[in-house]
Design a protein around this nucleic acid. Structure first.
Length: 852
RNA sequence: GCGGGCGUGAUGGAAUGGUAGACAUAACGGACUUAAAAUCCGUGGGCCCUAGGCCGUGGGGGUUCAAGUCCCCCCGCCCGCACCA
């Protein structure tokens, strides 16, 4: 009996594929292409199960398409800039560059052990000047076209570390490392004008028909187009150097219900008030501690500061509204000021209740008595008719909006306006490990682009992480240079790009990774768009939206002509595992725990262990399984097969030991089938009739079903097809020539069908079955559709929608015959109880429903 | 707070509005074995259990000949929110 030796088999075929360069994309652009891409990894040092899942999914698609005759591009590389490298530098003294490159080297070995069909010749790392120099040029071209600009913006500032913090580094308002209270600070930063494309990015979501609906919705909401009005409220006094406040609203219909004006803490009016008020200064400082994230701002308790100033209501003469500075108004959205209508906006109501401001309902829900309609702590945001609104009374909300807009425009107090929630993309980061922004600051000439001939601006290698702050700013010489315009001494920009910059065009680089121009137009236009992009749903908005923007911006500056970068998108779910804690609440690794029936014990101490919830694998909860150990123990094919079984790819999956065992057992089982000495010789023709025919049909059904399932990315069902075929092979007993010929055919089919999922064992079995050619080069079997459909079908018969009997009928039999057969069934006759059926519904080949 | 998703046997899941639970995992029974593992065969939603029947897709309502699937309301859990990638 041949033993299934996964490590030996996997090593053998990985070497063969590499020697034959089996998975290199061809430059023959006359062939139909297929571009499969998985989101490239950050080189953290070791692969985790999320990677295994992601790359297995992509590999199945790549191998399947290749077998079907496509010229497949399936590349891999490294998203190599980022914060963890700097943390390693601070915590362990490692240089970000060497730390990253070592991580890449070890992860590459791990990835290769998975047997992924990558074209490794196209690999690159974004931290190398050979990559990032191109984006420096792209940035300068954006700048020329006005797609990049500089403005002041807010950052989280850690006063102890003298550094800018990412939102994730702010924990409960404090710096994660220092514990110091984080402040908001204004810095001058570079922005890309993504808002220029807001309408196009929104409208084109329609064309992304192979994207998950939820991602399209998220992008839609993120862009957040809202139509409304800009309304001017004139100040009634003149104690500040401003005569009016501009407010953006989507609800001009509720203007009569306005009871206050609220401005952002960094609104010009707030700053003007602060010049003469200590309390205002304190309140603004308080708001600055909130952090910069939207979630922090919106979940914070609504607080405000009454400036003592007021504005005139534009429609009600003599009425004034107080102006507050409020912590829930964002300067980045709209005009940084709102009018509060507490009755019909929850935030405004919370605020009004806290500060005793009046609440006037102006929209009455249908079928409600105005005298009973009182707003206490729940705002009414639904439809209705206007009340308490002068001439507008009786209008419905929608027409009220139009009438309000006309009125405001007539009075010169407001204009129709469309705003987007989408903000321009701030790309400046005050960090070392990123692509330097190619700008030189001159006292006389201002911000001057580095001349194209002087690119790339490379990072200095000798940096010091022991001092607080940005090492690029602390570097003794790197920043000093001369102004390209006037020649005087000048200073380099010390900020680097957001790492989303690199990932916004890497898919283009793969098309032509050695190009001196980033990528060539021809290669990009042949390979793009990516036919199937696969990655985590956490990228549903930012990375995908930035890439869509980049594609447009690069088109604008002449790099290519492409509507959308990713034609098909699949977002995979997370890999989860049960969590375990000991009696002290300390998290335990699954390898430390042994299960005994329903209870768990610590493997060494024998102490009882509490098995907790199934959660996303994370280092902090220790519920992780190391892919390397799984691959060593069971083999990559087992790991891959288990990843694909059971859970649909877009859903979260649970990693279980028994599941891995099950996948391993299945592979061993089919390995035995393929090594069966009693099979007839290679090339034996399968029977076309007689006793083996049912097994042949089962093989064709599997070919058809599995191909459909892979095309539809339903890999769990594809695995079920394989099980069903394997079971059919096992169930077919007998040794007649017809049966053994059918069995060989079914086993060969099974081997071909499993090859995209478990490629190494498939090659080995193909070889054992007597084939000299590599399975990877053997094409894809096509089902004979005449063998798929059964000739007789079991059809359910319902009485009043309840299943009462099943009858067997020939396929596609006439409706009347089906009805007669159903009504002749003794069971049905009994249910009819001698009454004539009222109605009989016959759905051919499916169901018959008798209505009594 | 806003936005998005998910909820079906003990478990992961399957099901163009048409026989709910394909396929697998755990469990149980049997065969083989001195024994165990492996392997093979079988049982496998719940209840009343007699042919048979009743109830079942988070909860409640509705549309339909027919609802896991469509519509409305509610509950629970998970994810994202612009400097993590």
């Amino acid at each position: 009996m041949v033993q299934y030796d996964a490590p030996a088999i996997e090593k053998k075929w990985q070497t063969r594929w590499a020697e034959a360069n089996s998975f290199a994309a061809s430059s023959d652009i006359t062939k139909p292409k297929y571009y499969v891409l998985e989101m490239f990894p950050y080189p953290s040092g070791r692969i985790h199960m999320g990677h295994v899942r992601n790359y297995t999914l992509g590999d199945v698609v790549a191998r399947f398409r290749r077998a079907k005759g496509f010229n497949v591009l399936h590349p891999m590389g490294w998203d190599a800039f980022g914060l963890p490298a700097e943390n390693a530098a601070i915590e362990r003294g490692a240089h970000p560059g060497s730390w990253t490159r070592e991580n890449i080297a070890s992860m590459r070995v791990q990835l290769k052990s998975m047997g992924l069909a990558y074209d490794w010749d196209r690999e690159f790392a974004t931290c190398e000047p050979d990559y990032y120099q191109h984006e420096q040029l792209m940035f300068l071209k954006f700048l020329e076209k006005g797609l990049a600009y500089r403005k002041e913006s807010w950052v989280n500032w850690d006063p102890e570390e003298n550094t800018v913090l990412a939102n994730e580094q702010v924990v409960d308002g404090r710096g994660w490392r220092s514990g110091a209270i984080v402040e908001r600070r204004r810095l001058s930063q570079w922005f890309l004008k993504i808002t220029e494309y807001a309408d196009d990015l929104l409208a084109s979501i329609e064309t992304l028909d192979r994207w998950p609906e939820r991602v399209r919705l998220m992008q839609h909401n993120w862009i957040g187009k809202s139509e409304g009005a800009r309304v001017e409220f004139r100040l009634s006094g003149n104690t500040v150097p401003l005569d009016a406040i501009e407010v953006f609203t989507t609800r001009p219909d509720t203007l009569f219900g306005a009871s206050f004006i609220a401005v952002a803490a960094n609104h010009p009016l707030a700053l003007a008030v602060a010049e003469n008020s200590k309390e205002a200064v304190d309140f603004i400082a308080e708001c600055a501690k909130l952090g910069t994230s939207e979630a922090a701002v919106e979940t914070a308790k609504k607080r405000g500061f009454d400036t003592g100033l007021s504005v005139e209501h534009p429609l009600i003469s003599g009425k004034t509204l107080p102006i507050h500075i409020a912590n829930f108004v964002l300067m980045e959205y709209g005009t940084g000021a709102i009018f509060g209508c507490p009755a019909h906006d929850q935030r405004d109501l919370d605020f009004a209740n806290a500060y005793n401001l009046p609440v006037t309902p102006v929209v009455l829900p249908e079928n409600t008595d105005p005298t009973d309609f009182i707003i206490t702590d729940e705002a009414y945001t639904g439809p209705g008719t206007l009340i308490n609104s002068g001439d507008w009374d009786g209008l419905d909300v929608e027409s009220g909006k139009q009438v309000a807009l006309d009125a405001l425009e007539g009075l010169g107090a407001g204009t129709r306006e469309t705003t987007f929630r989408l903000r321009d993309w701030g790309v400046s980061r005050q960090r070392y490990w990123g692509c330097p922004i190619p700008i030189i600051h001159c006292d006389d000439c201002g911000a001057i682009p580095v001349p194209v001939g002087n690119l790339p601006v490379t990072l200095p290698e000798d940096v010091d992480f022991s001092k607080p702050g940005n090492p690029l700013a602390n570097h003794p010489s790197w920043k000093h240079t001369s102004c390209p315009s006037c020649g005087k001494a000048a200073i380099r920009e010390q900020d680097t790009f957001d790492t989303f910059f690199e990932s916004s065009w890497y898919f283009l680089r793969y098309a032509d990774p050695k190009s001196a121009h980033g990528f060539s137009r021809e290669a990009a236009e042949y390979w793009m768009p990516v036919d199937q992009y696969i990655g985590g749903v956490e990228h549903a908005v930012l990375h995908l939206l930035y890439s869509r923007f980049f594609t447009r911006a690069l088109g604008e500056v002449g790099y290519l002509d492409l509507a959308e970068p990713f034609a098909g998108l699949m977002t995979q779910g997370m890999v989860c595992h049960q969590t375990y804690q000991d009696k002290d609440g300390k998290w335990l690794f699954p390898t430390e725990v042994t299960q005994n029936g329903d209870s768990w014990r610590h493997g060494e101490t024998g102490e009882a262990v509490r098995a907790g919830r199934i959660e996303k694998m994370s280092k902090s909860k220790r519920n992780v399984v190391d892919p390397e150990i799984i691959i060593e123990t069971y083999g990559a094919d087992t790991a891959r097969l288990f990843m694909l079984s059971d859970s649909p790819p877009e859903r979260d999956m649970e990693w279980t030991e028994s599941g891995v065992e099950g996948a391993s057992r299945f592979l061993k089982r089919i390995y035995r089938m393929a090594n069966d000495d009693s099979l007839p010789a290679t090339g034996t023709t399968p029977p076309t009739e007689g006793e083996g025919i049912e097994l042949v049909r089962a093989a064709h059904k599997a070919m058809y079903g599995l191909s459909q399932d892979i095309e539809g990315l339903r890999f769990n069902r594809a695995v079920a097809q394989l099980h069903t075929l394997a079971n059919a092979i096992t169930d077919t007993k007998g040794a007649s020539p017809s049966i053994t010929a059918a069995r060989r055919f079914a086993i060969e089919t099974l081997v071909q069908l499993i090859s995209p999922l478990a490629p190494h064992i498939a090659e080995e079995m193909w070889n054992a079955l007597g084939h000299q050619t590599m399975l990877a080069d053997s094409g894809w079997p096509t089902a004979d559709e005449s063998l798929i459909a059964d000739n007789v079908i079991e059809i359910a018969v319902q009485v009043n929608g309840k299943l009462r009997d099943t009858i067997t009928l020939p396929r596609d039999c006439p409706k009347q015959d089906a009805e007669d057969a159903a009504l002749a069934s003794p069971t049905i006759v009994r249910y009819l109880d001698k009454q004539a059926p009222k109605r009989v519904i016959v759905v051919p080949n499916r169901i018959i429903n008798v209505v009594v």
